[in-house]
Write a protein that binds this DNA or RNA. Structure first.
Lengths: 129, 129
DNA sequence: TTAAGTGTATTATATCACTTAATACACTTA
DNA sequence: TAAGTGTATTAAGTGATATAATACACTTAA
């Protein structure tokens, strides 16, 4: 699978998407799922870059987006830490979910599926899984 | 809105995505929704390019993807026509829906939402709309 | 036969996002 | 003081996207 474990997180990078987006999303996912604790330190830019075999600048870009979303706090000279504010995590998590739902519904609507159609499809899906 | 009507279809292009993908998706959407009839001729490459103010090569690329999906048939010297095979349309429509569902569920799962969570969110969404 | 309108192919150019590389600087801690 | 942090800068390369200009094969109607 080319799966890399670093800092208690799992990473699987490919070329289908920008690398910085994949790093961002996979760290964010770990936070949202609670797989990494609040206040915990994540690997340094250089350490992460070396582990993932990508450029430090690329990791930096991902880390800066995490901080802009207030999911992390950076302390110069110390490192990058997950926020200690559970509300921040909850807020971002629901905002991202809202975006996913909106995009999904728009996409299905553009294919001519109604809300009832979608409910049926998901119900069928849930039944088999 | 910068909405352009051409060949019975509506187009609204922006810079958030490749132009050829937007043209592809918007024609495909018109077909899936039955807004354009089976067997009908769609605008020529040059006509579409002029109407949308984009390059003919860009339109060409969108048209070729439609043909690869067998949603259209091209007749040299005559033009590009929607397939007359309703099954083809149905097949593609369900394939795209399947992809949308899979991506949506994966995205929600990466945020730590369960199938039950998702059902609740969509039910709430349906109720208010 | 001809002219206009089709799809199609080719070559060249330009732009932009992404990624890497190499450095350097400010800060914190041991 | 040395090592490890985040951060900034400059340069270069690559690939996808889009445009431009041109040409060719085919179909249809005048």
């Amino acid at each position: 699978m080319n799966e890399i474990r670093v800092g208690g997180m799992r990473f699987a990078l490919d070329l289908s998407q920008p690398l910085y987006e994949q790093v961002l999303e996979q760290v964010r996912s770990s936070i949202a799922k609670g797989e990494i604790a609040l206040g915990e330190k994540i690997p340094s830019v250089r350490e992460m870059a070396q582990a993932l075999k990508i450029n430090p600048n690329t990791v930096m870009r991902a880390y800066q987006e995490l901080e802009r979303d207030q999911l992390t706090e950076t302390r110069r000279g110390q490192g990058t830490f997950i926020t200690t504010d559970a509300d921040k995590v909850s807020h971002i998590r629901h905002r991202l979910a809202e975006e996913a739902v909106e995009e999904f519904l728009a996409r299905m609507s553009s294919l001519g599926f109604t809300a009832a159609d979608i409910a049926n499809i998901l119900r069928a899906k849930g039944g088999e899984g």
